[in-house]
Design a binder for these strands. Sequence first.
RNA 1: GGCGCGGUAGCCAAGUGGUAAGGCAGAGGUCUGCAAAACCUUUAUUCACCGGUUCAAAUCCGGUCCGCGCCUCCA
Length: 467
Amino acid sequence: MAIHFYNTFSKMKEEFKPIEPGIARIYTCGPTVYDYAHLGNYRAYMFEDLLRRVLKFNGLKVIQVMNITDIDDKTIKGSKDRGIPLSEYTARYIKAFFADLKTLGIEKAEVYPKATDHIPEMVSLVKTLMDKGYAYQGEDGSIYFRIAKFEPYGKLSGKKINELKCGYRISSDDYSKEEASDFALWKGWTPQDGNVFWETELGKGRPGWHIECSAMSMKYLGSHFDIHCGGIDNIFPHHENEIAQSEAATGQKFVNYWLHCAHLMVEGEKMSKSLGNFWTLREVLDKGYDPRTIRFTLLSTHYRQPLNFTLEGAHASKESLNRLYDFINMLQRVKKPEGKSGETINALVENTREKFKENLNNDLNISGAIGTIFEMIKQVYLISKKNELNQAEAQLILDLIGEMDTVLGVLPSKEETLSQEVLTRIKLREEARQSKDWALADQIRDELLEMGIVLEDTREGTIWKKR
RNA sequence: GGCGCGGUAGCCAAGUGGUAAGGCAGAGGUCUGCAAAACCUUUAUUCACCGGUUCAAAUCCGGUCCGCGCCUCCA
């Protein structure tokens, strides 16, 4: 089944054809580790997680590279303000970042290169650009990319250089450029940088922001690879600049498919640090939401739609997942050896699998894919209601859900257990119910509910679940 | 101003030519000792608005209104 993605470059949905059959090489713009990442950042990483999972679901091997930007104005400022070395300052945020990824169930990329570990690669790339006349050194010692020489500049973002508003953030280094829109490949050392600098063939200084992505993606994925992702705000200037640097240096096409996700909104505005309206993962978890609920919330809206994050929405996600979990519990309790649903279940499972995949392969239509799961749930409940479901069929459905969860990643990783003490209380309640001591039975049920354990009395006896 | 995305029920959200998925929330009912879960019924004669194309439009075309993003920190 063909996979289609919306390519920012062509502004159209295109069939995905990997350069090397069977392998998808992906570069995803990662975090700048000057602070804790916020939910908006994680929306982007969640989208990239979905992308890699869907590719794998289709049987492709994925090689994903995600950079860690550990050198820029903000990290330098942060380390100076705290009076600690840059690497020590960034280490805590790198650690927090990986911890959050784990919490959210985001699969690890194959490579997480740090900018500071790749200075030689960047220097070499800048030298190539200088040799080819695409870069020049300004009076301030910085090296700039000569946009005027790269004719296709603007082809990703649809911007024309002469129409760009002049930046309002004109700093002294702008007087060293030939054109205001030229961007820094290498920044000459200034006193503000303190002891953060590298002595290289380009002089004393540090890399510009964009060059790391070109140097590191080419190192790990080759000079021409399949997919490059990021937030929509990276289209310009970041990705535009990456194309310019990379293609000017190698003379070949940099990336085939550019995928960008829309922003996470909060009360109608994008969540960002500069607006001060951001929530970290920890803050949301502290409001009592399960990590899987947050994962599902971030995942369940199509990546090109702005996602308005609200507590009401998180609640809806939580209840949706509960419906799924209850359904799984029900299937696990089916013990009937015989049944007469036969063909119906087989057809339903096949059909659901097909539609699920079809939706995902249509530009990662996760909302549609999730819809197919809940449609199936309803159908299966109707069949089970008539007591026509047997154990083998229940297992078939459980297997399908397990398969689909390789994409969703919302099922609990291991079975939950109760303490002996709680099990004893449940047993006591059973006895109370036998002797129709409803007061005691209800009291125990309320007691356990306080502890987050829900009891349900079914035909086959009492079952429990954690909520 | 330039470029881009969008407006579908109380909320979230699929659906790109064939007669409105799904989730949450609400109401009534079945089941239950009571609950819970599940099921049934119910909640958009209609997809921002106005024209047009078509046998047929939420979907295509033109226009209008509104919201959001980017235009050198940003996921």
